[in-house]
């Protein structure tokens, strides 16, 4: 797709645009290091990774699978919430923590199965199907919690194991970070090395070809949406373990940033495909911007404007570049 341009300046510009994300990342990093000296400290960078990066990274990886297959999942927040609700409820009912964790994952998978039924079974477009799931899920949570009351764990009754997911460390590294990196590596291996990953990518590029190749497209699509919800459910477990409370419909807070990170990541790929490294870099960019703006002492409300402008700019450069490549 990126055609060779005869004009060297144009080629240089295109080369720059191709790496708009990397350039934005380096630029943002340099600016924050200059205006907020504490930004570059090890403690701060670790806090960026633990507090801003991990959860969003997990949700964005989940989103990447849906977008890579040519769809989208607006109900990742619902999967987070269902996982969180099942986790808290089971612990509250006195069940052992490992069982509660399995219950939480099952809660997330339930959302994925519902999506799979709508998308593969009935054939509804992913956007509409998962939008419907989002609404039904919101109502279901309000019914389950007497109109949307948070479910707290009494501070005295929290089993030590419950906190491990959010507060524990593995070989000195915070557990959420280890889990997030594990998911990133596994997701990258799945997309790059497995049959499922190849079919997933092919579906996003040309679904009809997958169907004409005799592959069971509905089954692969169903598996994709179950996998999306399963990964989101892990984020639900970690967030619940960190804050020891389930707040109905709180998972939707990740939705827009996850979509943003995934599509920012597509600017890294020459063909504009969603890819795991791009998504991770997109999440890192969003996390660093959030943290750096906080340290810079800029008015809190301007921070949101600045974040929006930055995303907008990266997308504009990335897409304009792709358009230029397609035209040439």
């Amino acid at each position: 797709m990126p055609a060779q341009s005869s004009h060297p300046v144009a080629a240089v510009l295109r080369g720059f645009a191709r790496y708009a994300l990397v350039a934005a990342f380096a630029g943002v990093f340099a600016i924050f290091a200059a205006i907020a000296p504490s930004f570059l400290s090890g403690a701060n960078l670790l806090s960026v990774l633990v507090n801003n990066f991990t959860l969003l990274a997990i949700v964005a990886i989940a989103m990447t699978f849906a977008v890579s297959a040519g769809g989208i999942d607006l109900s990742v927040g619902t999967a987070i919430d269902f996982s969180s609700f099942a986790f808290v409820s089971l612990v509250l009912a006195g069940q052992p923590v490992p069982l509660a964790i399995l219950g939480g994952l099952a809660g997330g998978i339930l959302v994925g199965l519902f999506n799979a039924l709508l998308i593969s079974g009935i054939g509804i477009s992913p956007f509409l199907a998962t939008l419907g799931t989002l609404f039904v899920g919101r109502s279901a949570q309000q019914l389950l919690t007497n109109g949307g009351n948070p479910v707290y764990l009494p501070p005295s009754g929290i089993p030590e194991a419950f906190r491990l997911l959010g507060h524990g460390t593995i070989a000195g590294v915070p557990a959420p970070l280890v889990i997030a990196f594990g998911i990133i590596v596994v997701a990258w291996l799945i997309l790059a090395r497995t049959r499922f990953g190849r079919v997933n990518l092919a579906t996003g590029i040309q679904a009809s070809v997958v169907r004409y190749s005799g592959l069971a497209l509905p089954r692969y699509t169903a598996a994709t949406y179950v996998l999306v919800s399963l990964i989101a459910a892990v984020a639900g477990l970690i967030v619940t373990s960190t804050v020891t409370v389930y707040i109905p419909s709180s998972g939707n807070a990740f939705l827009l940033n996850a979509i943003g990170a995934t599509f920012i990541g597509t600017t890294l790929d020459p063909n504009g495909r969603p890819n795991i490294p791009g998504t991770v870099l997109g999440v890192l960019l969003l996390s660093i911007v959030a943290n750096g703006l906080l340290l810079s002492g800029l008015n809190f409300y301007w921070q949101q404007v600045a974040t929006g402008l930055l995303i907008f700019t990266v997308l504009a450069i990335g897409f304009a570049n792709r358009k230029a490549g397609a035209r040439a």
Binding site: I72, L256, G260, Y301, Q304, G308, A316, F319, A320, K323
Partner: peptide, 29 residues
Amino acid sequence: AITLAGIVPLLATLAVMNIVAGLELVLTQ
């Protein structure tokens, strides 16, 4: 953003939504 830069509407309006919501916060605190 959509016709000149060629961003798909879903993303273009998503990014604009974030900027606009931020501006509202700036204006009203």
